[in-house]
Design a protein around this nucleic acid. Structure first.
Lengths: 148, 148
DNA sequence: TATAACTGTAATCATATTCATTTCAGTTCA
DNA sequence: TGAACTGAAATGAATATGATTACAGTTATA
């Protein structure tokens, strides 16, 4: 899965685990270890979908706008990774049966594969991810205030 | 899906539709519109698995070694694309719960997604792909000798 | 109302990945 | 013996990805 997806999911999970706060792109950049500008770019996509709100200026930042239990990985996938599974075979030989029809054939097959993947991803909410992250034994920082 | 996979499937389909022939890397390169050296490189992987045989020297080339109905897209996926679905989030902040555990969490989720994808791909044999390619209306070159 | 702390966005640069291309050694057939 | 192949390494070009810089616009607050 591409890194825009993982960055988006990471950011949303971070926001879900800091309910009521305004998290700055710098704070999220520290957690994700990517550049703040990139955080703002990806979060801009989530804002356009209404999943988060952004506030400019002093004391600004990002905050979740939806119930983490109602936002699933398919929602994120649609924004950051749609079509990832589709085959990359641009221009084979049109004068050969195989060359002429391979792209359509594989696109059909992987179109269905992607539908199945999307259904699978719809089974995980950001809340689920947040719970999985917290359940993991490697770090249990209990000071974090969580809403669930 | 990455282009090694599509190149491998394209090549195998080509071989399946030319049973009994020795197809050269040049012939396959013409159908796929990629460089012959790359064809040989990818077909080398398939040869190592025993799916095809390669013959060096004059009148050499590649030929299918297995029943196209018994070779499925999961077999190819394993060789060319294993792990494609796994998330790319290398080194987040280990001092943050989210950063410390996101990779493991997403790897767990997408590990299952990949298993599901592999099951899906196992449902399509090279024979199926060859039939789909021939059924497609855009090119029906009937001179091609086929074994099924 | 001035300033500090933010987001939004464009532009540029560095790095990584992907592929084509060249080259050549080894193999096989005629 | 030479032409037609594969195998494999090495190089270079093109593309994709991500960091960085820069700056305009926004907002709280002292």
């Amino acid at each position: 899965m591409n890194s825009e997806f993982t960055l988006a999911v990471h950011s949303l999970t971070y926001l879900a685990l800091h309910p009521g706060w305004m998290a700055t792109s710098n704070a999220i950049a520290e957690s994700t270890a990517v550049h703040p500008v990139r955080v703002r770019k990806v979060l801009g996509l989530l804002r356009k979908q209404g999943y988060i709100a952004a506030k400019e200026g002093c004391a600004g930042g990002f905050i979740l706008q939806v119930d983490p239990g109602e936002l699933d990985l398919h929602d994120i996938y649609k924004i950051t990774s749609k079509g990832t599974l589709l085959p990359k075979c641009s221009s084979a030989n049109p004068d050969c049966v195989v060359g002429a029809n391979m792209k359509t054939t594989l696109t059909t097959i992987f179109g269905n594969a992607e539908k199945q993947l999307e259904t699978f991803l719809a089974g995980y909410s950001i809340k689920d991810v947040a719970l999985m992250v917290r359940q993991h034994p490697s770090k249990q920082i209990t000071e974090i205030v969580t809403g669930f």
